[in-house]
Write a protein that binds this DNA or RNA. Structure first.
Lengths: 158, 158
DNA sequence: TTAAGATAGTCTCATTTGCAACCATCTAAA
DNA sequence: TTTAGATGGTTGCAAATGAGACTATCTTAA
């Protein structure tokens, strides 16, 4: 007779852990800066890259639906945290980038989030953290969640 | 100047990985059996425990909101997959358990899900899988997502 | 016994989000 | 060219879900 212990079932554990970790982080960007998760992902993507990029690019690399990104972009523009400029070579898309205010928010938020991440992982030794990152990477690669060298060049096209 | 690479940021990676793994599994319980995630959690909890338990217990141990569980219970009852009996000693709560049909579905579904889990983790060696489970466990424990011996006895009260 | 507070479960409401239709624009092939 | 199909982005709609009010019931202490 088949049995499945939810508490030992990796998919369930990942779901629960991700939800818990997200909740812990949201107190930073949500409560303090009024950003929801999609908005934070837009800010994070634009802040990390120095060049402007399209909404589609953000949707692809954060694995978020394009309509969700579209709404986040609208909200962030009305708050003057990002701006968009027309792309002369392709008038369908817009190039997005942080405004000065957006940059300031990014600079203020990032250290807080990195501190939270350290807190959450502080139960692991340095070696264990490294191992954990490596194992996550292997699973991501096998699910094609990360860019192989081939896929990376395709991503550039976005 | 602070920077944060989303692709190396563990909270983001956990979210993305959990979403991807869930999507891979949902093709089993969703497409084939018409169960959504909350419904599957109710089935899984009832199938694993031999005794009947309350909706509140399921909500607590799967970390799902009680209103979500309530809806899942209603849906599963109309499909005759679970049944509930009054609890004479506390008439506020109901004891839930799988019906025969529910048991049959459980027996059919579990091997499929376990196979999927194996597939997803097949990119890791046996030792790596063990390590990964152990590291997950440490993080869960530090976030109090799992029952310590003390918390376990409290859980019994549900 | 009574009253205050806790708890189980349901229900309504508001929010979030994915889907898909849609428009504008681009690309490629006839 | 012209046309068919692909792509970027927006929006309306529906489904899912959490918050919190609410009822019924239980518990505890005055």
């Amino acid at each position: 007779m088949a049995k499945l212990d939810l508490f030992k079932f990796v998919p369930f554990r990942l779901n629960r852990l991700a939800a818990e970790v997200s909740a812990a982080l949201s107190s930073e960007y949500q409560a303090r800066y009024g950003l929801d998760i999609p908005e934070w992902r837009v800010i994070a993507t634009l802040g990390f890259r120095n060049d402007a990029c399209s909404a589609q690019y953000i949707a692809h690399c954060t694995r978020t639906h394009k309509s969700t990104i579209s709404r986040a972009v609208t909200a962030l523009m009305t708050r003057d945290l990002i701006e968009r400029v027309e792309n002369a070579s392709d008038r369908r898309e817009f190039r997005l980038r942080l405004t000065q205010r957006g940059h300031a928010l990014y600079e203020e938020l990032i250290p807080r989030l990195l501190r939270k991440e350290r807190e959450i992982l502080s139960c692991l030794s340095a070696q264990e953290r490294k191992d954990f990152a490596g194992l996550l990477g292997k699973i991501e690669a096998s699910l094609e969640l990360v860019q192989t060298s081939k896929a990376a060049s395709e991503t550039e096209a976005y």
